[in-house]
């Protein structure tokens, strides 16, 4: 009996300490904001934060996978914008709205596959390949609507953002679902093992007889799929197609990934930390907005805190010796 208790108890201490530092920073920040603004800890505000983070959350999962393969996908934000525009314009052209959503997500999956081919077959560094793709994709998005935003009236947009299931809004559930899916893929399939392999030691993968081209294409295509889902949620959030809405999100996703403890160098890290990273960014932005701090200061404050978090993370790791 005693031994049993012991067995349950011992892992708890190290487990708490093994939490990435970003979680602690998140707690500290939430405390600070709750002191400065009384309305901060209201249930409505927590819900607000979760809804606001859901789109970036999904995009950050995608980015985490790419970072795990030692790449960065700079086209993710543009892909999300493209989906908002495609979805609305297809629906406007008279296609069933669900079919239109599926088709637009297919489009970003194809974009992702092209990224994967460029990186693996073309041997172009991911940074360059996806940067090129970012420009192409955002041009397509702009051309689809001749540069303006596009609007279509359908109940689905409001339905997604305003429905609550067990007090939690639908976009948050979708993000949770994507987390579960990505987690399963990453830790329970060969595909996941290969992702870690691509980041850690690609040569070993080749020697082991794994087709790395296929693996790259798959992981970029899956990232495209997630960017597509992110785009669908975003379209619901703004009830229209916006060709530049996702501009810069790819970098926020990289920041969230790094905050979550995923390393840019070797295939180390995981998507659970990314959740904390995204929440940190959203909590910061929300807290600064609620405190009424102007955008010109916001970016500087967020930049400093992100850097601090990453430095603290690195220091903690060094002290721990891993």
């Amino acid at each position: 009996m005693n031994a049993n208790v012991q067995a349950v108890k011992t892992p708890l201490g190290p487990r708490l300490r093994a939490l990435p530092p970003v979680v602690w920073m998140l707690v500290v920040l939430a405390l600070v904001f709750s002191i400065t603004t009384p309305q901060y800890f209201a249930l409505a505000n927590l819900r607000n934060i979760l809804v606001q983070s859901s789109a970036l959350m999904i995009l950050a999962f995608a980015q985490t996978l790419i970072v795990l393969t030692q790449g960065t996908d700079l086209s993710l934000g543009a892909q999300a914008s493209l989906v908002t525009v495609l979805w609305v314009s297809l629906a406007k052209a008279g296609i069933n709205i669900y079919l239109a959503a599926t088709l637009s997500v297919c489009a970003t999956v194809i974009v992702g596959m092209c990224n994967g081919l460029l990186v693996s077959k073309g041997k172009i560094p991911p940074f360059i390949a996806t940067f090129g793709m970012q420009n192409v994709v955002s041009s397509i998005a702009l051309l689809t609507t001749a540069g303006s935003s596009i609007y279509f009236s359908h109940y689905i947009f409001q339905f997604v953002t305003e429905t609550r299931f067990l007090f939690v809004p639908l976009p948050v559930w979708i993000a949770a679902l994507m987390f579960a899916l990505t987690w399963l893929l990453l830790y329970r399939t060969k595909f996941g093992v290969n992702i870690f392999g691509l980041g850690g030691n690609p040569e070993a993968l080749v020697l082991a007889g794994v087709n790395t081209v296929k693996s790259y294409v798959k992981v970029y295509a899956y990232a495209g799929f997630l960017a597509g889902i992110c785009g669908l949620i975003t379209a619901c959030r703004v009830e229209s197609g916006q060709p530049v809405v996702g501009m810069g999100w790819e970098f926020e996703a990289v920041a969230a990934t790094l905050l979550g403890g995923t390393s840019l160098r070797e295939g180390r890290g995981g998507i659970s930390g990314t959740i904390a990273g995204v929440l940190l960014l959203t909590v910061l932005r929300n807290g600064l907005n609620v405190s009424g701090i102007s955008a010109m200061y916001q970016n500087a404050i967020i930049g400093v805190i992100v850097m601090l978090a990453i430095v603290i993370d690195a220091m903690v790791r060094r002290v721990r010796g891993d």
Partner: peptide, 19 residues
């Protein structure tokens, strides 16, 4: 903070309504 982002304008409105 991203110029001309309507999505962020909506976020700011939501946050300020909370406030």
């Amino acid at each position: 903070s991203t110029n001309d982002s309507v999505e962020e304008q909506v976020k700011i409105m939501e946050d300020l309504i909370q406030k």
